[in-house]
Design a protein around this nucleic acid. Structure first.
Lengths: 231, 231
DNA sequence: TTGACTTTTCGAACACGTTCCGAAAGTAGC
DNA sequence: GCTACTTTCGGAACGTGTTCGAAAAGTCAA
């Protein structure tokens, strides 16, 4: 392929493959067949190289997905961030949520403080917006980190739960209806009964997020001495 | 092994393996080497049967883990549930959280409304306690389900994030410290700097849970017309 | 030109979860 | 006793992510 004779002082066998080439091919495969069909072997075959050659350009599959996710997030248009700290937090968290929802596998790769630890700076504006919003509201650094982490837990949980239930729905049984609940043991659940499925299908992330953010910032309007809140 | 001659009208080849036997062996393996080492092949070898024989007694590995989790939850002592609805919710959610934290893989198996859909009745008291607490506080059925789901999202997110970061810590690099943040782009994050790691290591679930529950039930003390709250 | 060194490439192999299909071992009806 | 039928058992095989080790292909110093 690339027959560049001597890339200037570069020793060793000249590479035929580049990381950029791999990422382009991976995106093409994902666009064609969906990310579930993206395997290391298929990717290597698509490029026309040996399977194990890939591992000289990426650490492992998770690393590959992380690189793709970084690129995906880079291309998200940054929303206009409102001036009000609370609204800024909600806007940034929603952007984070949307980015993960579009690429559901992303949430499985990103761990913990993975958002801060694994993604590169092009994704940090979301974290910054949340931490800055908390700070502008009067939170200490410690409290601001807590605000972000709580929002992150809630967000990643919602995305994963939603992705898993969608996958299970695609694979067959749509839901376990639990119409066998014993009213004497779980009266409230039995009273809800099969309506649970319909109720649980509703999207409650936006409202839940607002409620959580309000709660996290709530003590600002009242007691200054609480532990988790700030303000 | 079991040479019961004729189990009464039972046709077909008599089974040498029982599901109970499989579960006992699986628990033994997990206790010995940890759940990461539990593989289908090792489990079959431990019992002394062919690998594929297992699939006549369990649907797949996820199903096996689900059976183990059900048994694990059954053996949890049910805490004394407080009379106050809010405290009842916190107590039940904490029990849910502790059960998942002890068996981190559980959260990866349980999806969505999987707690309600996949576990059997012995685990439903936690859901019931939360839904009942919301109901006693004045929530409608719809609102009560929302309360549970929001708590579930937050809880499963926290458990997964914590489990993943713990695994990554065990595998080598403890954390990506991000001391390379550009203060002009992300001033608040840069100001926190490497202190992020220490701040993010703190356990904030109890406080976050209380804050969230308070928020979800907050509107009880105020406006009756909001959408997400109840009371 | 030759030999040392460095980097890339890739076939072979491993353990994993899972599926296919044939063999084994029992009961039921004749 | 013989033929169905039914259920359990398990070897072979597939596709997966990943590792090992050797071969290939270049640069650099002598």
């Amino acid at each position: 392929m690339s027959r560049a004779p001597a890339p200037h002082g570069r020793t060793g066998r000249p590479p035929l493959t580049s990381r950029a080439q791999i990422l382009v091919a991976a995106r093409r495969l994902i666009d064609q067949d969906g990310w579930e069909k993206l395997t290391i072997r298929r990717l290597a075959a698509e490029i026309g190289i040996g399977t194990t050659t890939l591992y000289h350009h990426i650490r492992n599959k998770d690393d590959l997905l992380l690189l793709l996710l970084n690129h995906h997030i880079e291309q998200i248009e940054r929303p206009q961030l409102p001036g009000d700290p609370r609204e800024r937090i909600v806007t940034a968290a929603t952007a984070m949520h949307d980015a993960l929802t579009a690429w559901p596998w992303a949430a499985e790769v990103l761990s913990a403080d993975g958002f801060v630890g694994l993604l590169d700076e092009s994704a940090m504006w979301m974290v910054e917006a949340i931490v800055a919003g908390a700070g502008d509201h009067g939170c200490t650094h410690e409290q601001s980190v807590d605000v972000f982490r709580n929002i992150w837990y809630y967000t990643v949980g919602e995305v994963l739960v939603r992705a898993h239930s969608a996958r299970r729905r695609d694979e067959g049984r749509p839901f376990a209806y639990r119409d066998d609940l014993d009213p004497s043991h779980v009266p409230h659940l039995a009273a809800i009964g099969v309506r649970w499925a319909a109720l649980a299908a509703r999207d409650i992330y936006p409202e839940g997020l607002r409620t959580f953010v309000d709660g996290l910032l709530a003590q600002a309007d009242g007691g200054e001495r609480t532990e988790v809140g700030c303000g």
